[in-house]
Design a protein around this nucleic acid. Structure first.
Lengths: 137, 137
DNA sequence: CCGTATCCTTGGAGATACTG
DNA sequence: CAGTATCTCCAAGGATACGG
């Protein structure tokens, strides 16, 4: 880390630090991307209280399309975040539930949601003020 | 909204609970959406150590285009998450920094990133196993 | 009931070129 | 240096219809 630049010139900004999940953390970036995904968050949120079946999930996550529900569930299963249990019954029944790993993600995501809930008012106010200052451009 | 259906039918799964950020929490949903945004996360991550100027941010967040950097910064400023300071100098200089509010978001997001880092290996393994079990379909 | 397959639209995002 | 403006592309996602 060659900061400091002891030449008397402007040092203010700190330079290219980026010890964060860039470069090397491509994988992590993709995971965060998925974890922050709109439908992902809502689906695992819906599974917070226990297992749900397909149609229940559809009802629990208003606005989601079959396509997206199926797709999201597939990703989550693939990552081992939710489990799928199919009962070979006359009217087919399939239940989805969070895995232990999925539960830990729920925790992390809940923090973010809580953050949004806590500061939602402040942010709205900020937006209003900003838009006020910059009418349309 | 004609839900409820008090007809005594199947109750197993818990029904449409969704005491989560659905319906009413449209605002929260949008905030989470933004907070989970790829570039947003990377930009505030880059600002973790202090203020940076425009070009420094470009270097700190490899792969970001000017368009996206400008756009992301605008959103963040609008939400009051980062501040912008322009110095009226001969070669223009503009510095961006996290606001206190932005710092709290960084905390929340860091938890998610840490989660990704912690379970990244496990997830990769899960994916491999899943893809193994379902070759192409 | 539980999905998969297909079409089609929208806007997110990169590349490029230009101003203050 | 610090952006803005414009074009284009592509893929995420909704609607719909069908299969197990």
């Amino acid at each position: 880390m060659h900061e400091g630049a002891a030449d008397g010139r402007a040092v203010v900004t700190g330079g290219p630090c980026a010890r964060w999940p860039v470069e090397k953390g491509e994988d992590i970036r993709r995971i965060v991307d998925r974890a922050g995904d709109k439908w992902t968050v809502l689906v695992i949120g819906a599974l917070e209280h226990g297992c749900l079946r397909y149609t229940d999930l559809q009802r629990s996550v208003p606005g989601i399309s079959q396509r997206m529900l199926t797709h999201t569930l597939r990703q989550l299963r693939r990552d081992g975040l939710v489990s799928r249990t199919a009962y070979p019954e006359v009217p087919p029944r399939v239940e989805y539930a969070l895995t232990p790993l999925g539960a830990t993600l729920l925790d992390a995501v809940t923090i973010l949601v809580d953050w949004a809930g806590t500061h939602h008012g402040e942010i709205s106010a900020n937006r209003a003020a900003f838009d006020e200052a910059a009418p349309s451009h």
